[in-house]
């Protein structure tokens, strides 16, 4: 069993919960860290290790309110890491009037081979 990753959100970094035991994998809030590569490095490492002994099913939830372009590159890296996790899927949540966030999710879904489910917040 992988150790839990639990980060509280701040004004420029998202809230992250990766909990294999309870099957909760979620990123929410705002992502505009000063160094996005450094911020997401532990998350990517966690996912790579997790893929070796993943749960039967992994539903990864993105509930982002905002992310900058540097974070978008790292989100793609997370999705690419999730491609290596068997039986994984993405739940992409967005606010009703946030067309840009909906479109961002659609674009990510076209860049990776994982099923996406779109949900209103």
């Amino acid at each position: 069993m992988m150790e839990i990753i639990k980060l509280e959100g701040t004004e420029d970094t998202p809230r992250i919960l990766l909990d294999q035991k309870n099957g909760i994998f979620e990123i929410s809030g705002r992502s505009l860290p000063e160094d996005s590569a450094e911020f997401y490095q532990p998350i990517l490492e966690w996912l790579r290790a997790y893929s070796e002994s993943a749960n039967d099913k992994t539903e990864f939830v993105f509930k982002l309110e905002y992310f900058n372009t540097a974070s978008s590159k790292l989100i793609l890296d997370i999705l690419t890491a999730l491609e290596e996790v068997e039986n994984s899927s993405i739940v992409w949540c967005y606010h009703e009037d946030d067309e840009d966030m909906e479109e961002a999710g659609e674009e990510f879904s076209e860049l990776v081979e994982i099923p996406f489910e779109f949900k209103l917040n």
Binding site: S36, T69, S72
Partner: peptide, 30 residues
Amino acid sequence: LKKLYKDIIKNSDISEKGGAGLGFVDMARK
């Protein structure tokens, strides 16, 4: 712009300065 955004995000790495090379494209799109 959408096509350029996807090309860059797929093919570029984060620079030493932490940029993804997507800033201008994103400003124009938004």
